[in-house]
Nucleic acid binder design. Structure first.
Lengths: 229, 229
DNA sequence: GTCGAAAATTTGGTATACCAAAAATTGTTG
DNA sequence: CAACAATTTTTGGTATACCAAATTTTCGAC
């Protein structure tokens, strides 16, 4: 694959730092300073910040440095509601459009999660989980849906990652994923929508819990030190 | 409202030219030439082109000038499938979340269309039609949904505009919009989803017909003159 | 007339400089 | 000590120049 332009490389690096908490919510991203640190000019840095702002990972402020977004639960919940609709559409279309290769791919990812859930590194397992959902979107054979779905996966990555890490539940995840796969293999759109609905309901609850905990932690820190950004 | 930056103004102007057919599908947008014509530098022009590419109105090509997108029916149909899911979610959430002001706004737009459909300029009427759909999205009180829905409205504007202009059917549109409004006013999510489904099915058929006609027209022109871009 | 090589042109990407506006900081006064 | 004014700093946006790569055009040989 062709080498990415500088702006995309910078966006990827910043995205990784944000998703891994190296750049925590509220941290400012100074265009000039960050560019100098990376030995690049402002132009690709500016472009990269724009990319991340579009993904909802960074918040642009007029005449102030952009900051790493710290979405309230309500914002995340809004995005999750849209993601649920997209995933339901994915599963529904996959029931109709998926080829044998698509189904094999989806099943293979489920089997891999089943085998390796406990041994694998949590981040790796989380990424496999995301690839499961992406594989279903790809099986829909709807390019616009794939693109929008990917955008929401990226936006929600951090919240979902925290939720997945802190509320790991192997049996529940495998059971719910299995229901989804079986519905798609059976070509049953209604069953697929229901299975997606149950799975995403669990996830929403997990995210709510995790964000509440993070918010409590942050408020305690803010009161203690009086810190602002 | 604060004055927009140059890049956004340029994007708006190019968008208008594209949607109105002044820049037809396939026309190239030369960064340097267009910038010089508008008396601006490449930087805001480049940014504007990026904005339109994100909206699907412009197709970026490596080492070649971007061109005005000429989506195949399949691409448009894919986007419409996603838009249908978003509109159903809008209507569903609006049933729960809409305030009295939201309902009044939606009803007012319907009444305005009913009164002025035949007299008003077709472009004005089309824009009112779009504002009807936007009002429902706004009534959902889900910011992420509003943003994604707006993005899809923009991407699909040209196809929908052509379809609306060439297959105008006042009674059908008013009837279908009325069903949607009544379902939302009744707070009935299922009825709202059904009404949206019927309405968008009609629209998809109209778009299919119009794109088939446009494609036939373009192929005839290409064969005749051998023109390429 | 065709084909291949060389030259020219076009293009996207990036670096750097400058400007106006907004925000933050500092100093002065009451 | 607080408020206000002046100054400084930071910032986003834009203009311009340059470069490497890709594409197109031109030219020469067969």
């Amino acid at each position: 694959m062709p080498e990415k332009i500088l702006a995309e490389q910078i966006a990827n690096q910043l995205r990784r730092d944000i998703l891994r908490g190296i750049l925590p919510p509220g941290a400012s991203i100074k265009e000039r300073d960050n560019a100098a640190e990376m030995g690049v000019s402002r132009t690709p840095m500016r472009e990269a910040i724009r990319i991340l702002a579009k993904e909802g990972l960074v918040l642009l402020r007029p005449s102030r440095s952009p900051i790493v977004a710290r979405p309230a639960f309500e914002e995340v919940a809004d995005q999750v509601a849209v993601l649920v609709a997209l995933e339901k559409l994915s599963a529904e279309l996959a029931c109709r459009e998926a080829g044998a290769g698509d189904l094999a791919q989806i099943r293979a990812i489920l089997d891999e999660m089943d085998r390796n859930f406990d041994q694998a590194d949590p981040l790796d397992m989380f990424e496999i989980d995301m690839s499961f959902h992406s594989a279903i979107a790809l099986a829909s054979h709807n390019a616009a849906l794939v693109e929008t779905h990917t955008s929401y996966l990226q936006r929600l990555w951090h919240a979902r990652y925290l939720a997945a890490i802190q509320r790991r539940n192997r049996d529940r995840v495998i059971r719910q994923h299995t229901r989804i796969v079986e519905a798609i293999e059976a070509g049953d759109p209604e069953a697929a929508r229901d299975a997606i609905g149950v799975h995403m309901q669990s996830m929403t609850e997990d995210i709510r819990t995790v964000i509440a905990e993070e918010t409590a932690k942050i408020e305690k820190t803010d009161i203690k030190t009086g810190e602002t950004t």
